[in-house]
Amino acid sequence: MTKVLVSGFRGSMGTQACKMIETDPELELVAVYSPNLKTTDAADYGLPTDCKVFNQLADIQTDADVWVDFSTPTGAFENAKFALDHNMVPVIGTSGMTEAQVVELEKLAEQTNTKGLIVPNFGLSAVLLMQFAKQAAKYFPDAEIIEMHHADKKDAPSGTAINTAKMIVAGRESKGTEYPTVETLPGARGADYEGVHIHAVRLPGYVAHEEVLFGGQGEALTIRQDSFDRASFMHGLNIAIKNIQKLNGFEIGLENVL
């Protein structure tokens, strides 16, 4: 039985995570955390009576094996440090951490002999898209990314899009071509990650979607994935929680536990 704490349990993803854990006989929801709660009574949130509710990081005392984080970019970093210091494996679904923060967590995991995982996207279709994009970049070094998310997503571009760009760069055998353009409106070409342009869309009605466009001489390739419901991410989260033993230190990407 793997014992789990969920941080950010009141959000859309956190709520889905709690439901998934509660219905899996191999998992146990032992605690939840969210700052500034007015009450710490599990019944007030529809949680099992034996599930502990915490509203202060320093007050957390739990025997959880895994810390699942769906909080905020600023909160997730401090939460991950707390988890590593208390012998819990952080599985972080919150995007927006800086490169420096990730490096610090990698060092802390090594010092504490603990594992951890940042997952830019729990959707299996998104994981496969990134893998396919890396392979395609070998033959199509010219690529751009369009990521589309719900209007409430704060960070742009998404962690998935940034990770996709990194994998495209890693898969290239030559640099993409630089095409001189003049932006008649600033930002028209999107963000630029080592020559891969990323365009972020935020609109109501969307959940999480991504297209990678590759262009070559006389041909083009498009890879697309769509997540229509947040429940679709729970399969990947379930896999991550149950396969933390496959991790080698602190790693990034669901593919590390598949």
Results as ranks from 00 to 15, higher is better:
206 Y>R: 12
195 G>Y: 11
166 K>R: 14
222 T>R: 15
178 E>R: 14
181 T>L: 11
177 T>D: 13
155 D>Y: 08
149 H>P: 00
216 G>T: 11
203 L>H: 12
167 M>D: 04
183 E>V: 02
206 Y>T: 06
160 T>H: 05
163 N>A: 04
207 V>F: 09
181 T>A: 12
219 E>H: 13
215 G>D: 10
161 A>E: 02
169 V>G: 02
155 D>V: 14
202 R>N: 08
204 P>C: 06
152 D>F: 09
202 R>T: 07
150 H>Y: 10
170 A>Y: 01
211 E>S: 13
157 P>F: 03
179 Y>W: 13
199 H>S: 09
195 G>M: 11
199 H>Q: 13
180 P>W: 02
159 G>S: 02
166 K>S: 04
151 A>D: 09
150 H>Q: 12
198 I>Y: 03
194 E>V: 05
169 V>C: 06
172 R>L: 02
177 T>I: 14
172 R>Y: 01
176 G>A: 14
220 A>V: 04
152 D>A: 10
165 A>N: 04
214 F>N: 06
184 T>Q: 05
211 E>L: 13
182 V>H: 13
165 A>K: 04
197 H>C: 06
197 H>A: 08
187 G>D: 01
220 A>G: 14
202 R>K: 15
208 A>G: 12
202 R>W: 01
208 A>V: 07
182 V>F: 13
